[in-house]
Write a protein that binds this DNA or RNA. Structure first.
Lengths: 232, 232
DNA sequence: GTCTATATGTTGATAGAC
DNA sequence: GTCTATCAACATATAGAC
């Protein structure tokens, strides 16, 4: 529950040493302008240091992105896993409710995000930007960070919805991730996360996300086999 | 129904003049690597011409992006409007079915896309990439191109779902766009659009998208007022 | 219209002083 | 550890020949 993540060494919470300030600047600028749209110079300037300090601490731009991603995504994924395991332990072998699975998948992102923006940062959530970043430098990293969790949640969804085609369900799971990415990239105007104070009261948008995704995952294609073509 | 859009002057469909080849190359490269990740040099080389030709025809990189976006998005938006108007004319004042509205919003993208990839281009749909592109050069363009259609579809959704909070419904509409962006950016592996031959048989993924979005839009938050917090 | 050549600035990364 | 200075490569855009 401390402000500093588990990876960082002990630092003063107000100032932070250079390495920490570089990570903070990278989180904000990569999130706002993307990987290709952020230069190491702009990044160092935002951290109040020189260009060489960034390369000294991280070695390369790509390594810096990896570091700042890991710092945030690891706690999120651990929390997701904990929530899902708690649900399964409580259910004792019975299938879980879809809404509970979705909540365990979505809520940790908002919780961790809210815990780390006591600063003035209503910037987009870095991981969401990276998820839809076309730069070749991030595609590998993307898969390494997100595939594991999705592979862990999919079987739970399949047990909760045994009547659905497993492949369709996998697509629906990825669509759920798409909803999350869209919101956290700041593309949903009424969400309360796109504005200047975005990110603190996430209750409403999270409920809407959970409802939307739960309905989409559960949606039996009942109307499909009846009507072959496009509705006129 | 011709291969050449309304904006372009008559050109041979196989070869095309330099301007057309530049637009084709821009559509592919901007879609694959984003705005910042695509250089004018790489673009000219892909079009089989020199750097100066690109600047002669379009004046700047940003103007080239605008041109290639308009070439594809205008037909899509016109088709969306036509479909929605046809639905309303047929309904004669009665509210439309949600699924029909969603279909009118999503299907034209796939139809236009499939019509213009007789080439070897399984690349991401440019407009989807641009929608989540953080580059400042594209944000204005983005709004100009998409706000109109969304403003046109929202009232139809509100009439179809009068019991839903209009603001929640607007969020849900934007979430639907998020689903579309996610799929057309190539982030859904089982969709048939991420692979090498992606884009031609879009029937399955379109059905899944329509089902998911319809369920999400329709989803009455029935479970929400009963349970205040997170499900345990 | 398209080319070669160039102007002008920025990029990521490094060398060496301190 | 952090700085200034610098490298080689790349960026967008333009000038002028043809």
């Amino acid at each position: 529950m401390a402000q500093t993540p588990a990876l960082a060494q002990a630092t003063a919470p107000g100032a932070g040493d250079t390495r920490e300030r570089l990570l903070d600047a990278a989180e904000r600028l990569f999130g706002e302008n993307g990987f290709d749209g952020t230069s190491m110079r702009a990044l160092a300037r935002a951290a109040g240091t020189g260009l060489s300090a960034a390369n000294y601490h991280f070695g390369s731009k790509e390594a810096l992105l990896t570091a700042v991603m890991l710092r945030r995504i690891n706690p999120v994924n651990e929390l997701r896993m904990q929530r899902l395991e708690a649900l399964e332990a409580q259910a004792g072998g019975a299938p879980l409710r879809v809404e509970a699975i979705v909540d365990a998948y979505l809520r940790p992102v908002f919780e961790i995000r809210a815990a780390f923006i006591q600063r003035d940062s209503p910037s987009p959530w870095l991981a969401a930007r990276i998820y839809s970043d076309p730069s070749q430098a991030v595609t590998k990293l993307k898969r390494e960070l997100f595939v594991g969790v999705q592979a862990r949640f999919l079987p739970a969804l399949q047990r909760a919805l045994p009547q659905r085609d497993p492949r369709d369900l996998e697509v629906a799971q990825q669509l759920t991730t798409g909803l999350l990415v869209h919101v956290l990239s700041g593309n949903v105007s009424g969400s309360g996360l796109a504005g200047p104070d975005g990110g603190h009261d996430y209750g409403r948008i999270l409920c809407q996300l959970v409802d939307f995704a739960t309905a989409g995952l559960t949606s039996a294609p009942a109307t499909r086999p009846a009507s072959g073509g496009r509705p006129a």
